[in-house]
Design a binder for these strands. Sequence first.
DNA 1: ATTAAAATGTTATATTATTACATACTGTTA
DNA 2: TAACAGTATGTAATAATATAACATTTTAAT
Lengths: 132, 132
Amino acid sequence: MHKEINLSKNQQIIFDFIEKAKEPLKAYSILFNVQKKGIKAPLQVYRALDKLIEIGKIHKVESRNAFIACKSSSCEISQATAFSICNKCENVSEINNPKLSKYLTNFEDDTGMQYNKYNLEFFGLCKKCKTK
Amino acid sequence: MHKEINLSKNQQIIFDFIEKAKEPLKAYSILFNVQKKGIKAPLQVYRALDKLIEIGKIHKVESRNAFIACKSSSCEISQATAFSICNKCENVSEINNPKLSKYLTNFEDDTGMQYNKYNLEFFGLCKKCKTK
DNA sequence: ATTAAAATGTTATATTATTACATACTGTTA
DNA sequence: TAACAGTATGTAATAATATAACATTTTAAT
């Protein structure tokens, strides 16, 4: 479960918008859409995004420079994220697969590096786009 | 092995520079450094980067918006990439682990999605930074 | 030689993100 | 409740990353 943290005003506005969207949103798209709520500048958006990422309420989809609400109950902090991305329709969904996350969390290479976070993005064609 | 493709002039200039670097380079850093070779505009860099990525000679490190030469003999096309990234010294190295790549290449989720590419980035502290 | 595909050159502009600095709010402890 | 530290906000300017549009040239296969 997400640790319940009280979001600040801007954080709440921006989280609400991202959560309703159910698809990854770009920072400036968020900005344009929350201007009616009094948020005027990019930095206000980016600061809220940074905090929301830090506390695990949203994730950044790196290959798309876009932000999506976390739907997994297991990622209190966003230390282990995996997404499947359709290259045609651009649908993005978070993969919540315990085996996968266990495998990656326990992964060790031969360099002695200590991992505390990973991000994985799979690309391909979703079921719908495959049959078109 | 990389399929041997003749690189064009700009592609070769930019690949040579990236390969020598042994660390991820930003697009504009590349631009500034190859201006003496006659490359004047961002687009010339980005076009070469796109092509080099397509043929698997370099990879993009998405979380850093940076580009690194491929050192793995197994990635003819850049369809399966994994990196380990030190959050302190920013060292990035490509992980070439057959078990990992096999696991991920064969990964199937329950959505019926067909994957043909993935990108994985591990974050943490490298051996050196851990002991400091 | 003809032709199609790939690559180049150039200008302008779009998109994504941060720096810098001033101010205000929130919760804790003296 | 005053003082303080930490967090959040407001605002302007600018940096960093990436693409659109269009004209031209090169390359490689017929």
